[in-house]
Each structure stands twice: as structure tokens, then as C-alpha cells.
């Protein structure tokens, strides 16, 4: 439903996107993740037909966003990051206006507007001026505007920025609800955001796609390492070297947060190795008591940090080689 093929866009300075290719199938909910300025909004603006790419092709529902712009736009509901609204229009008026712009047939218009109002829980404010809405309601009105023509594709740029935790939760469940019969691309620089609603993540950094995988695979396959956290009561001085000696253990790092007589370590283990039993034995050998042995998966933050660092290192070494 959404296709980006070798998209490039430069703004004169370094910002922009360098080469982005991905494809999103019908019904997928995909997160577009990256630090601020990585090229998320640029990618989205090209996909929505707001601006053309310098080179490459973007397609929505099979329509090229440049050569068949109007048809492509008919299939997308877009919520820009800034959630632009007309302060002088009432909620209903705004949605009717958007419905008209989006070719909703006259006789379906009021039912579509009602549906969007209901879905985004705007009923209490439907007669209110957009300029007088709270941030949470503004965000929902923006989403309702994107939804009003019931498009098969939704593109949401940072939909929870500036919302309080309750509103963030509501926005997420709304997106999840909408994902049932739609293809959705959500951008964010906040990882839990993506983790909460998306099945697949595209990671962009510095104008390039650095990862494209399911969240599950991204987390489990990350860095060829798994990780075990341990807390030991009455640990002996030789514990750390013993842990290092275990087959498959690559790194042992003492962590802060010791309470009472307990000390904590993070043990990095080669992927595919379950070292928990050996760790347990190593602790007992020195007379310590293992109060915690927890296998932890990497958080998306760590994955992301590592991807971005990796990217920086490889481009630096590439520059050095050249």
C-alpha cells in the first residue's frame, strides 16, 4: 500500500534523506523511528505528496505521488506533526470542510463526520471553535480530519507529541483500534510509542534506513548478544573472574543499585547461549546467594542507540578509507 523506492531529497544543507527504500503491505502497522532531524518528516511529506523527492518514486495504493498525485492523495489520511487547524472553524465545520476537500459524496458527508467525531471522542466539543480546544482535543480533531474520508492508508507524524500520559494512552489505543482495517505508518522519536502499536519498525538515521524488521526480531536478534542481570547476596571477591570464565560470557559489568549486602552485575552472553545455569553454579561456588537471575531482552532504546552508533562508526570508517 505504501512504497518508497530510492527516495532522495536534499535541502542544500546536510539535512534531508539520502536513499530510502521500503514497502508496506496492506494491513501492516509500521513505525518510522529516528532521532529528530533524521528524515522522518521529509519521508512522510514525500509519501503524502506534499513535496516531491529529488529522485526516486513514492507510491500510495499503487499511485505515484508525483504523476498521479490526486489519486494517491485520495487514499491517504495524513496527520502532520504540527496538527494544523483553522482556529475560526468549529469542530463540525472543520470536519465537513475536510470531507468536502476529500471528495466525500454530499449525502454521506454528515454520517462520515459523525463517525469521525464518535471515533475520536469529540462529541463533547463538536460545536466548539478549533482555536479553543485543548491540546488533546486538537490532536484528536487532527486525526478525525485525516480519518473523515475513511482512507485505507493513514500516515501519522508524531501523533502523541505534547500529550499528557492519559492522552498518550488514549491516542495509542485509538491507533490500535484503527489498525484493524487499515495500513498505518506512524513516525515517532519515542520508542515505547512504536513498541506499543507497531508490528514492524523502520529505523532512519541521518537520512538513511538503518533497520527494517519486526520489533520481535529486532529485539531478540540484536547485537548477537543476550543479557542476564544478577543480584548476589554475600558475593565473594572471585565471583567476577569466575563469571568471565563461563563459556559464552563476553562481558561482565558491575551495576549500581546495590541494596544491603547485595551486589548487581550485568552479564552479556553470546546469542543463542543460555548461561543462567552456569551463572547460578558460579555464584554458589563462592558461597554467595543468587537473589536474582533475570534474562533481559534489549530495550528498543538500546537497539536504537546501537544502530545509530553503528551507523556513525561505519560512515566514519568509510570516510577514513576514502
Amino acid at each position: 500500500m505504501i512504497e518508497a523506492i530510492h527516495l532522495k531529497k536534499s535541502y542544500g544543507n546536510a539535512r534531508g534523506i539520502r536513499d530510502i527504500t521500503f514497502s508496506i503491505a496492506r494491513g501492516e502497522v509500521v513505525g518510522l523511528l529516528g532521532p529528530n532531524g533524521a528524515g522522518k518528516s521529509t519521508t512522510i511529506r514525500i509519501l503524502t505528496g506534499y513535496m516531491p523527492a529529488d529522485s526516486g518514486t513514492a507510491k500510495i495504493a499503487g499511485f505515484d505521488t508525483l504523476t498521479h498525485s490526486i489519486q494517491a492523495r485520495r487514499h491517504v489520511g495524513y496527520l502532520p506533526e504540527s496538527v494544523p487547524l483553522y482556529p475560526e472553524l468549529r469542530v463540525e465545520e472543520y470536519l465537513r470542510y475536510r470531507a468536502d476537500l476529500k471528495d466525500v459524496p454530499r449525502r454521506e458527508r454528515s454520517s462520515r463526520v459523525d463517525q469521525a467525531i464518535e471515533r475520536c471522542q469529540l462529541t463533547p466539543v463538536r460545536k466548539r471553535l478549533a482555536g479553543h480546544l485543548s491540546k488533546g482535543y486538537r490532536q484528536r480533531l487532527g486525526l478525525a480530519g485525516a480519518l473523515v474520508a475513511n482512507p485505507p492508508v493513514l500516515i501519522l507524524d508524531e501523533p502523541t507529541v505534547g500529550l499528557d500520559p492519559t492522552q498518550v494512552f488514549e491516542m495509542r489505543s485509538l491507533v490500535r483500534e484503527l489498525s484493524v482495517d487499515r495500513t498505518i505508518l506512524v513516525s515517532s522519536h519515542i520508542l515505547p510509542e512504536i513498541e506499543a502499536v507497531c508490528s514492524r519498525v523502520l529505523v532512519v538515521n541521518d537520512g538513511r534506513l538503518v533497520a527494517d524488521d519486526s520489533i520481535h526480531r529486532l529485539l531478540s536478534g540484536f547485537g548477537d548478544r543476550s543479557r542476564v542481570r544478577i543480584a548476589v547476596r554475600r558475593a565473594d571477591a572471585e565471583l567476577e573472574p569466575r563469571l568471565r570464565g563461563i563459556d559464552g560470557v563476553e562481558e561482565v559489568v558491575q551495576e549500581a543499585g546495590a541494596e544491603g549486602g547485595d551486589r548487581r552485575w550485568r552479564v552479556e552472553v553470546r546469542a543463542g547461549v543460555d548461561a543462567r545455569e552456569a551463572i547460578h553454579a558460579a555464584i554458589l561456588t563462592g558461597g554467595g546467594v543468587p537473589v536474582e537471575i533475570v534474562s533481559v531482552r534489549a530495550s528498543l532504546e538500546e537497539v536504537f542507540g546501537s544502530l545509530v552508533r553503528h551507523e556513525a562508526v561505519s560512515s566514519a570508517s568509510g570516510a577514513g578509507a576514502a
Binding site: 505528496g49 506534499y50 492523495r73 491517504v76 495524513y78 494544523p84 476537500l101 471528495d103 480530519g145
Partner: peptide, 11 residues
């Protein structure tokens, strides 16, 4: 206001 972004991406 940025409304150009919704206006110009509607059909």
C-alpha cells in the same frame, strides 16, 4: 499555521 500541509495533501 501549517494548514497548507493538510490542504495541499488533500486531493
Amino acid at each position: 499555521n501549517g494548514t497548507i500541509e493538510t490542504l495541499a495533501t488533500d486531493p
